[in-house]
Design a protein around this nucleic acid. Structure first.
Lengths: 215, 215
DNA sequence: CTAGTGTGGCTAGCACTGCTAGGGTCGCGT
DNA sequence: ACGCGACCCTAGCAGTGCTAGCCACACTAG
């Protein structure tokens, strides 16, 4: 059985190779440049091979998106853990989210903008893929204020706001600068400073998009 | 000069006919169904005619989007005027926004999701088209709380949140129900009830998407 | 009323897309 | 050694956005 085992291993390797090539090509030249022919050429096979691994092009994009959710969840988790107060945790997670969207726009588009057939949490059941759910859980972990309101609703609104900020700024609907201030305003509203510090941190700097941006 | 005048008139009429046909076709069958051939057939001309009026397909979609902003601005204005307190005005405008996105998904996609070359307010200058700016002004008019914060930033964040709610709910990233509660949460955060009524209105009803929705 | 002119739409076609059918070659198990 | 089966590639299909070149029509000048 070692032969079939090896074959399956190679098949899995190639499966991953296709996903990686699609992501890299998209991040380098945009999703419009990701055609089945170019992708096949990149993995040194002919197009029909792609269809042995995926139902179609959309499925490939979906696979890239699922991997992206892993990355996003990891980035949010990292941000959350390096923060002190809950308020700062929310700010850090929000900034990590916006940085992710800025640093990896093609990947972000695959995850949120492009219409995919990836099944998400249709009814808040747990039949959704693990990766997107994990990313949302990271957000929910820092969104809950515990002041009697519905934490899940708050998390969904915050997520929506972050997504809106990311995509509207990228498409130029809102000026790309001052993202930092917008994030501060969001944090201020959803996690007001109860310690009386009354920090007016924002200022008018507006340097960069939202932060340094990782990877 | 009456002949050339008539020609220009007919030309303008056909220009509008193309835009309307594109919008109707998109609203009926989605943007994927809007091909140059089908669109040309719908207006009873051949494809090259389209290129006498528009630079390409993207320009047609952009024209549809610009008209959509007129509709959106009108809907928001209507909602704002029929509201009493500023707080209720914000809620009404938010609901009108979400209703618009639900009732006319294809049009909304042309305006916000599809990548167009429509020039928006790149640097908050006034060189952006009038229609999108008008829609944003409607939002800004109800977003400014006047408590010392930057009203424009608040408006941008609220707009982002509304857009995020609309698009994430539509794509199934967040459950489609309970949009009403999410809007209430957003309003609560950005326009807290200062009259001490401490209204816990939301409840768990979650009926419908966000409201009745006007065609 | 005729001849000339130019605007403008149409037919045909290009390069490209996602996807599929069929054959042919290789390696494996017996 | 032989037969079998998995597997990959070449070639092609229908449909996409967009363009070149022709031709007919309507209008203007005489």
């Amino acid at each position: 059985m070692s032969s079939t085992e090896r074959r399956e291993r190679e098949r899995a390797r190639r499966h991953q190779l296709i996903i990686t090539a699609a992501r890299e090509l998209a991040e380098a030249e945009g999703w419009d440049a990701v055609t089945t022919r170019r992708l096949a050429q990149r993995v040194a096979y002919s197009q029909p091979v792609l269809y042995n691994h995926f139902k179609g092009k959309d499925a490939i994009v979906g696979a890239v998106a699922v991997e992206g959710f892993d990355d996003l969840a990891a980035a949010l988790r990292r941000a959350r853990r390096t923060a002190g107060s809950p308020r700062e945790a929310l700010r850090a997670v929000g900034r990590a989210y916006l940085d992710f969207a800025v640093a990896r726009p093609a990947l972000y588009a695959a995850m949120f903008v492009r219409e995919t057939d990836v099944p998400f949490a249709q009814e808040a059941q747990q039949d959704s893929p693990a990766a997107p759910r994990a990313a949302f859980e990271e957000l929910a972990a820092v969104a809950g204020p515990g002041d009697g309101r519905d934490a899940e609703v708050d998390a969904e609104v915050i997520w929506s706001a972050l997504h809106g900020l990311a995509v509207l700024a990228r498409s130029g609907r809102i000026p790309q600068r001052r993202q930092r201030e917008r994030l501060d305003a969001l944090v201020e509203r959803f996690a007001p400073d109860t310690a009386g510090r009354r920090k007016a941190s924002a200022g008018q700097d507006g340097s960069g998009t939202a932060g340094a941006g990782g990877a």
